[in-house]
Structures are given as structure tokens and as C-alpha cells.
């Protein structure tokens, strides 16, 4: 009942009974092995209510991120993006909807084509989704770079000429280029240096407010989730074991596994 109400009031992303099974077959003779990477999970993300997804590696959080972006094909379940089920639409339809849901990657160096300049990288989403007229492309690229705090002069550079933090800014600029409502952040700072992590998190917080963004924030770092998200879901072995307000889940956990995670913090 309560879920219905939320949907009426306009969830951004609503996931229902989503599952992803991988079938592993090592060789001809071995038995098929089914891995339930994501097993029947449901959650809703409301506007301005960023959700953190925590768990160990292998708990299915990255798979979930890839599923809601349709970078992986779900085995079953619904993924409602603004009330439209994107779980079973084709590649072409999804391509157009990608404008509204974007992703920020963990590995800053491998998520950008190493042989494209920053300028080319940023123009790509603008051209694909026809965000601005062609003659304003350069202006828009400068504006995006400014928003993520990169000097406009950096746009002639290639990713490997930039530092990890700068690359992450390019990735973020690329993600916000299409004016998405929701951005999936897949461990956005875990590959960055301690001294730079803060810059990126500050930037994400700033953009969240300025652009009215909602994040699905995947991290193994509980502190970061505490900071970024209003809501937290804990995943364990493909299932969401606990979901609720961050203040509840991360300070007063109900589930045994969540407690274990909190205890393990250094």
C-alpha cells in the first residue's frame, strides 16, 4: 500500500523483484552453476532522497547498478524509471532514456577512452542526445568544465595526461551533460587518493544541490554513505537485508549483517 502511494507521488527509480542470475559453465562436462548475483530485490528512490547501497564485494551492489542502467540484462523483475518499465525495452529505446539516468564509474582511468580528448569526450553525450545546438557545443563544454572545477584549458588533453581526480571530474561532467535526474555513483572515490577524495565528494554534494540530483550511491565506505545519502540499503549475497533511513540503518542497525559491517570498520 505504501509503495503504491510513493509511486503516485513520483518515484524516480523504482525497482521491483529484480533478479539477475549468471550461468557459469566452466567446460563441457561441468554442471551448469547458477549464481544469483541479485536475488529478488526491491527499492524505491524518491526525488532528492539519495540512496546508498553498501555491502561486501560480491554482494551484488555493482550488478544492481549495472542492472538499473540496463548495462546488464535483468533475469526478471521491473525497473521503473519515472514510471516506465525499462527492464524489457530494446536497446534503441533504452538508448534514448539514458539521458535521464547516468553513471559515475569507480575506475577513473579506464572509464574514459584513453585516446579521446576531454573535449571529444564531453561533446559526445551532448551530440548524441542533442542537448544544445551544434554552434553552442564549445560553450557548453566550457560551462560543464567550469561546473566540475576544471580549467577550460584542460579540454585539449587526453585522460592519461590528467590526474585521477581530474579524470573523475571529467567523468562527472560527462554524466551531468545530459541533465539526468538520477546518477548512479559506483564507488566514485574508492580509487582516488585520500587528499583528492574530499574534492570529489564535495563536488558531488555541490552538484546534488545545484542540479537537484538524486544519487544511487554504491560504496563500501560507510562513512561516505553516511555523508551522501538520506537512505541506505544493505546488500548481502544478492539480497537487500536491510533498508531504511541512513540515520537508522547506519547508527542503529537491525540486521545482524549490518551490525557486522559496522563492527568491521577500522
Amino acid at each position: 500500500m505504501s509503495e503504491k502511494v510513493i509511486e503516485m507521488t513520483g518515484t524516480i527509480l523504482s525497482v521491483k523483484n529484480l533478479s539477475k542470475h549468471f550461468i557459469i559453465k566452466n567446460n563441457v562436462f561441468s554442471q551448469k552453476k547458477i549464481i544469483n548475483a541479485v536475488n529478488d530485490i526491491s527499492f524505491d528512490i524518491l526525488p532528492n532522497e539519495s540512496m546508498g547501497l553498501i555491502g561486501e564485494s560480491g554482494s551484488g551492489k555493482s550488478t544492481t547498478a549495472n542492472l538499473v542502467l540496463r548495462l546488464l540484462e535483468p533475469t526478471r523483475g521491473e525497473i521503473m524509471l519515472f514510471g516506465k518499465n525499462i527492464a524489457d525495452i530494446n536497446y534503441k529505446e533504452m538508448r534514448i532514456l539514458r539521458k535521464d539516468i547516468q553513471i559515475i564509474f569507480q575506475h577513473t582511468f579506464s572509464a574514459l577512452d584513453p585516446k579521446m580528448t576531454v573535449d571529444e569526450l564531453l561533446k559526445e553525450p551532448l551530440i548524441i542526445h542533442n542537448i544544445v545546438p551544434v554552434q553552442e557545443l564549445d560553450k557548453e563544454v566550457d560551462r560543464l568544465l567550469n561546473m566540475v572545477g576544471l580549467p577550460a584549458g584542460e579540454k585539449i588533453k587526453f585522460p592519461q595526461q590528467l590526474s585521477g581526480g581530474q579524470n573523475q571530474r571529467v567523468i562527472i561532467a560527462r554524466a551531468i551533460a545530459t541533465r539526468p535526474k538520477i546518477i548512479v555513483c559506483d564507488e566514485p572515490v574508492s580509487s582516488l587518493d585520500v587528499s583528492v577524495q574530499g574534492q570529489i565528494l564535495n563536488l558531488l554534494i555541490k552538484l546534488k544541490e545545484e542540479l537537484n540530483l538524486t544519487y544511487l550511491f554504491i560504496s563500501h565506505d560507510l562513512k561516505v554513505v553516511r555523508l551522501m545519502c538520506e537512505k541506505t540499503a544493505v546488500m548481502h549475497e544478492g539480497k537487500i537485508v536491510e533498508i531504511g533511513k541512513s540515520s537508522e540503518v547506519l547508527f542503529n542497525p537491525k540486521h545482524e549483517y549490518t551490525r557486522k559491517l559496522l563492527d568491521a570498520e577500522l
Binding site: Q166, S195, Q197, G198, Q199, L201, N202, I205, R226
Partner: peptide, 18 residues
């Protein structure tokens, strides 16, 4: 930087530059 997450106020402490 490392401990600014623990005592977060307005923003995280971070070093500019690389």
C-alpha cells in the same frame, strides 16, 4: 582530509591540486 568524514561540517576538507 582522512578524518574530515568523521567530523563533517559544511564540506569535506580536501587538498587542492594533485
Amino acid at each position: 582530509c582522512a578524518y574530515s568524514l568523521d567530523n563533517y561540517k559544511d564540506s569535506l576538507y580536501s587538498l587542492e591540486g594533485a
